[in-house]
Design a protein around this nucleic acid. Structure first.
Length: 502
RNA sequence: GGUCCUGUGGCCGAGUGGCUAGGCAGAGCUCUGCAAAAGCUUCCACAGCGGUUCGAAUCCGCUCGGGACCUCCA
């Protein structure tokens, strides 16, 4: 079996084949660092992190490019041109560069909290002004863009007419046609510079008060929203690359425009597989500034937000996201997050216990051949589910079916030697591979340099003595007060005591 | 208004037409000094109405509800 990915271009699952055997180029639209990252950002970057890890597991060498948008775009086209970053910079009395630096740092911090791997290249828009200008010049030269008052616009109408003949109409990704667009696009002000409402800016003339500005053949200004991704993807991944990812909300117009720009310059549709993750909703509504329901990642991890009943660990959020399929909307709620927190804890504890198993304990032939076979089957399905458009939800469900088996063996509720040595070894290998390497989970335990461990062991021993003397007042006091401090004692079947730190 | 997606049990969520994922919560039991943990068992579903089919949560139609995009957006 081989990996299948849902391709937005064809609206179907397609077998994944890389252009160059063994190598994959993947571009994912990164954040605009004019503000703090929020819960919504967690979804694509975790989703594509898992895809990156899975492709790597399959043996591909992946070049993962994720940009940082540090040059502002128009808040709203037609309104007075205002650069997101420069506007806020004035309000906060900060240099744009200072603001960008701050939020880029926060973004990187959050990505690390989520245990997302770093991209191979993380290019910035401001670092690629030259490439963008070069690309715009090319588009003008080919006749698909025009200059107006120091701004440059892409001629969507002409592009659509010419490229429809080649089977590459504008709107092919998002499934809309331009004729309808003309009738349904809202009436906007100050559009006289454009020949057509559908045209989009490649370069925008900067008003004198504008802080972010660069010299260009058309005057002083700044790049339009879409051109950076085309320029940087082409530069680092080539004219045609394997995977382009991002949130569904970017399908139109952003990715549509990217396709148009790149196609004009390179005469090819830039990416083979367009992969889009769905949105996270809060109470059934998409999170967004206009809805006033944005939860920033710092707030999510600290619990400091009116919607939040408690803080949520980055791993809980990661688990929550991977428990659904990336193409479904995922509804956020305290109850759901708390369920995820408990579920992950149970799964992770079983996993850690599994790793303590000695295969010397079990016999060569499984006592329970049926269960042994079931375990082997569940493990084999991990790969099948991932190959089927990265169905992390199904893999996790299978893992939960393995939890009672692992716990049963550990607590001797299952007979010694229930599973064969081979199966236990396979269980260990695959659980590690999927939980840590592919899903990217890490332990939520804090490293306390062994001091806490020593203290807890001491208390466990005192409690053991108290219990031996039937001094249950003391033993319960130790147990309950440790629990209040977040240290949960567990009396194991064999008389030993283990514990978990919250 | 246009285009598209969606409606699964208390909550979150998988679901390729037949074998009713999974998590959390609830109930019972085993274990336990008591509890927790763990194990076992168990209750509660496919928005509604039609249709196709031997058989539909899954396909089709209609109705109702929710959402997304069309504007910055992950």
């Amino acid at each position: 079996m081989s990996l299948k990915l849902y391709n937005t271009l064809s609206r179907s699952k397609e077998e994944f084949k890389s252009i160059t055997p063994g190598l994959v180029g993947m571009y994912v639209c990164g954040p605009t660092v004019s503000g703090e990252s929020h819960l919504g950002h967690a979804r694509p970057y975790i989703t594509f992190d898992v895809l990156l890890r899975y492709l790597t597991h399959l043996g591909y060498k992946v070049r993962y490019v994720r940009n940082i948008t540090d040059a502002g775009h128009f808040e709203e086209e037609g309104r007075e041109a205002e650069d997101k970053i420069s506007k806020k910079a004035i309000l906060e009395k900060l240099e744009p560069m200072e603001l960008v630096h701050k939020y880029t740092g926060l973004f990187h911090w959050a990505m690390k909290e989520f245990n997302n791997l770093s991209p191979s290249i993380e290019p910035t828009a401001t670092g690629h002004i030259v490439e963008q200008i070069t690309m715009i010049e090319q588009i003008i030269k080919d006749g698909y863009a025009y200059v107006a008052n120091g701004s440059v616009y892409f001629d969507v109408e002409k592009y659509n007419t010419d490229y429809s003949k080649k089977g590459l109409p504008y709107g092919m990704l998002s499934g809309r046609n331009i004729e309808e667009q003309l009738e349904t696009t809202r009436e906007l002000d100050n559009q006289e510079e454009k020949r057509n409402k559908n045209d989009f800016a490649l370069w925008k003339n900067a008003a004198p008060e504008h802080i972010m500005r660069w010299k260009s053949p058309w005057g002083v200004g700044f790049p339009g929203w879409h051109i950076e991704c085309s320029a940087m993807a082409t530069k680092y991944l080539g004219e045609v690359f394997d995977i382009h990812g991002g949130g569904m909300d970017l399908q139109f117009p952003h990715h549509e425009c990217e396709i148009a720009q790149s196609t004009v310059c390179n005469h090819k549709t830039p990416a083979r597989y367009w992969v889009h993750n769905n949105m996270i909703t809060i109470n059934g509504r998409k999170m967004g500034k206009s809805y006033n329901n944005v939860i920033k990642l710092t707030e999510l991890f600290s619990g400091n937000h009116p919607i939040l009943e408690q803080a949520y660990h980055p791993m809980t959020v990661r688990f929550f996201i991977l428990q659904s399929h990336y193409r479904s909307t995922l509804d956020f709620g305290n109850e759901a997050l708390q369920a995820a927190e408990k579920g992950l804890k149970r799964l992770w504890e079983a996993y850690e216990n599994l790793y303590k198993f000695s295969t010397a304990d079990s016999l060569q032939a499984p006592v329970d051949a049926e269960l042994d076979a079931k375990v082997v089957k569940l493990l084999a399905e991990f790969d099948e589910f991932m190959d089927d458009d990265i169905n992390t939800a199904k893999v996790l469900a299978s893992m939960f079916e393995l939890v009672p088996v692992i716990n049963g063996i550990k607590n001797k509720q299952l007979e010694n030697g229930t599973l064969s040595n081979t199966t236990i070894e396979l269980l260990k290998t695959k659980m590690k591979l999927f939980l840590e390497d592919i899903f990217g989970f890490t332990s939520m335990q804090q490293n306390t340099n062994g001091k806490l461990e020593g203290i807890v062991e001491l208390l466990i021993n005192i409690r053991k003595d108290a219990k031996a003397k039937k001094d249950f007042v003391t033993s319960d006091k130790i147990r309950n007060e440790l629990a209040a401090l977040g240290v949960q004692l567990k009396d194991e079947k064999d008389g030993t005591v283990s514990y978990v730190v919250e």
